[in-house]
Design a protein around this nucleic acid. Structure first.
Lengths: 198, 198
DNA sequence: CCTTCGTTTGACCGATCGGTAAATTAACCG
DNA sequence: CGGTTAATTTACCGATCGGTCAAACGAAGG
């Protein structure tokens, strides 16, 4: 077996990565308030104390979790946005990039969109930064489409939220069908988009 | 003053309604796990014990909260769906009905869409019933549009989720702009819809 | 072999939370 | 006015959770 059940000593970097994986599943499924450090530690096969030794607090763990998820997606999206694609093709390409970034990490999207996250803490700041980055990427995408140039600012802001919320809906369906590939999810979005803008 | 601060004795029905109002705000803002009975009781101006006397448990309170919110919206939506409107006009009419049903109760939508809700409890069942009802209404609405008749079943299911998720996005914007009326929100949706299907 | 240092744990603490039981208040009714 | 009943509170319990601390473990180096 490669998957060891006994507590093998690992260098800090690797252990932290495993802890962030466990944290993603717990935070993504139960939300910040509903998740517990004990459950996260148990999922990772280590003690609760180790989690606190490495991340300082539940808040710090959540901040690290959100930052990793956010930068991963934001980097992929940025690559698409700065590519020489036309505005229409860019929409589907962005979705594809998001799904590829979420493959095997679907709960990352839940972490980034957790409304039950705390307020005024370091995690709240980290989460706000990541959300803001992706929201602005989406805003630029919406603004680049001539179709929406007639909308007033508030309506365009709402439309941007709808776009991100649509991703949420697709990801939730994906979470209920974990066997599907990122490519298939992108194809589905392509078909659905086609029926909307024809 | 009509708003009394001292603890006035109220008949159970009225007190329960006030408690459900407070529960909506707390559950809607912090989620099931993040909300506390103490905070709900404090918001309603009564003791925590009274909440438990009337609703039995946090779970029972959440179930009652979700049921009230769900039936309110489902009834309004059903009225629109069973009206003699054309499929296209029905979409906007449904949105209008939802916004009217949420006016002054915007957090009801968060309660119905709380992913941090418990599992296997009575509240989970109540929540599932309400969600299922509204989801099926949305599904019927999507199925009635010829535009989407070419989509396969899974894609149509996803599109239904996207539709409800779009409502979530608009309601969240509304929660950040509480001064706006339901009518204005419906108008915004009308303009946005027009740019999508033109 | 012994020391060192990063890794890891078990035991414990204080706070908070959901929940319970008994007592208290106040309105209604004869 | 007296008594019944519903409404409401105070005090308390047990469990869980986030967090702390000192100690144990184990690989690496001299």
């Amino acid at each position: 077996m490669t998957t060891d059940r006994s507590p093998a000593k690992l260098p800090r970097d690797q252990r932290e990565a495993l802890l962030l994986d466990a944290a993603r599943e717990e935070f993504g499924a139960a939300g910040y308030a509903g998740a517990s450090l004990g459950a996260i530690a148990a999922r990772a096969g280590v003690s609760k104390a180790l989690v606190l030794t490495y991340f300082g607090s539940k808040d710090g763990l959540y901040a690290a979790c959100a930052s990793r998820a956010g930068t991963n997606l934001a980097d992929r999206i940025e690559q698409v946005i700065t590519s020489p694609l036309g505005p229409d093709a860019m929409a589907l390409a962005t979705l594809t990039a998001i799904f590829e970034g979420l493959e095997g990490r679907q709960q990352d999207w839940n972490v980034l969109n957790d409304r039950t996250a705390p307020s005024g803490t370091a995690a709240a700041d980290a989460l706000r930064v990541q959300r803001r980055t992706i929201a602005e990427q989406a805003s630029r995408g919406v603004a680049s489409l001539d179709r929406f140039s007639g909308l007033e600012a508030d309506d365009r802001e709402i439309l941007t939220s709808i776009w991100m919320s649509a991703v949420t809906a697709v990801v939730h369906w994906w979470q209920r069908h974990p066997d599907r590939s990122a490519a298939e999810m992108a194809e589905r979005c392509g078909r659905i988009l086609a029926t909307l803008v024809d």
